[in-house]
Amino acid sequence: LQRGSGDSPGVSGLLRSRLEKLKKLWWRKSIPPVLQHSETARLAMDAFLEQGEPGYLQAIAEEQELPFLSPLDMDYMSQHRSQSIPEPNARKGHETEPKEGDTEDRASLFSELSSGTYFPLMSDVQPPELELGWPVVPLATWYGQTQASVYFQRNKANSIKDLLRCLISRAKTVIAVVMDLFTDMEILCDLMEASSRRHVPVYLILDEKYLKYFIEMCSKMALNKDHFPNMRVRCVSGDTYYSKAGKKFAGQVLEKFVLIDCDHVLAGTYSFTWLCSQVHACLVTHFRGKIVEDFDREFRSLYTESKPVPAFCIPEAGSSPASAHSSAWTFQSLLKSAKPNEAGTASQASSLSNSSIESIKMSPFRKNST
């Protein structure tokens, strides 16, 4: 673990120290980047999750490090942070006061599992299957030389959306999509035509935090799960950060690529929105050949981590199909549940902060309480 020497008077953190050297124009010695994990950054992050911006700035000052978080970073974490370990009095059916040491035991257990790491707890749930089928990777993909063509949205002679729709219309064996934001009705109709008319399996993985916009689009189009018999819609989030005291927040999946027949891949900055097709400056790269295998592997990994969207779950054989009214109700309930919980994110501190396990160095927001 790499951390600044903020405990020593006059010694700056690693990032600040490097910046000060770079500002010296007469300094000729090369200054390589520090690629290791920053313990100072972890301490500052934990302070922010527990005490908000004041705690974060205090930790930065004590470590003599640069304020590396932008306002955009802090707004995101403030909106999406939550408590990973339930409060003792908030547990269902638990009305008595917690016993002495109970809070510390729970925090210790969590610390052993995820303390000092950025990795979520592993799950023993079986990964979902690609039940619609998955084609054999073509020989041209296995052994073919990688080919790449770049398309820029600013070049009106080569429309990215037209290229995408053309590839979808030619798909024969599978269409696999990973997308952050999907609100383009024309592309959804293209996917529906491919799946229901040409019987091409379609797998769609969407970012969980932007899922509500896709559901809202389907609601406007009066669509329900009965209109997606050969399509699977799932959602996924990015990595989850856990603080020492039990706060957490999940990142987003901002990958954007479309895999066609395990032979073509479109990947880049293009989202399935009207703005991207008309005014945003975007680009995509059209890949063929052996590199497609990497996207095939990445899609399978994301699909394993993803979870189903209730509004698009196909009922098992023998169960009664949902009516249009019940499907519409499901869409509306999902839209409501997708809104951020303001009450849950307004808290600036957690009672678990007093039982945070000390590892490597005591969190800065605990120094004044001990």
Rank of each mutant, 00 (worst) to 15 (best):
K248E: 15
E100I: 08
S17G: 10
A328C: 01
S350E: 10
E193C: 05
E50K: 02
I205A: 04
K21H: 05
V137C: 12
T40M: 00
N224F: 06
D226R: 15
D162S: 14
L206T: 01
E305S: 13
E50H: 02
R197V: 15
Q332D: 10
L163R: 15
S369D: 07
S219Q: 11
D162T: 12
L57F: 03
R234Q: 07
M74A: 08
E62Y: 00
T173A: 08
L109Q: 12
P201G: 02
Y213F: 13
L163D: 02
A59M: 01
F295E: 01
Q2E: 12
L167F: 14
G251V: 06
V174T: 14
E293P: 02
E216C: 04
R3F: 06
S327K: 03
K172R: 14
E129K: 07
C262S: 14
F312D: 05
I168E: 01
L72T: 13
S38F: 05
T345D: 00
T240Q: 09
Y203T: 08
I60P: 01
M45T: 11
A44I: 11
D180G: 11
L35D: 05
L206H: 02
P9K: 09
G318A: 07
G93M: 05
Y270C: 03
I60L: 04
H325Q: 13
E305T: 06
L113Q: 08
Q126N: 13
S306P: 02
A176C: 13
S271K: 15
C218I: 06
M362E: 14
L167V: 01
I291K: 12
P54A: 00
M74V: 07
A311R: 03
Q278E: 13
I175D: 01
E298A: 11
S5R: 13
I160N: 04
L113S: 09
E100M: 09
P128K: 04
L43M: 07
Q153A: 09
M179A: 15
I160D: 06
E62D: 05
Y56T: 00
S30R: 15
Y210P: 00
I175H: 02
E53Q: 13
M77D: 02
L57W: 00
S159D: 10
L15G: 01
Q147I: 06
P9G: 03
G133L: 10
S196R: 11
G318S: 07
M231L: 14
C218D: 05
R16K: 14
V265Q: 09
D7S: 12
V253Q: 14
K290I: 04
L113C: 10
Q145K: 15
R18L: 10
L43D: 05
Q2V: 12
V253K: 13
G238Q: 03
N230S: 02
K367A: 12
Q278A: 11
I360T: 14
M45Q: 06
A194H: 03
C189K: 13
P127F: 03
P9Q: 08
V200I: 03
R42D: 07
S70A: 09
A346D: 07
S327G: 15
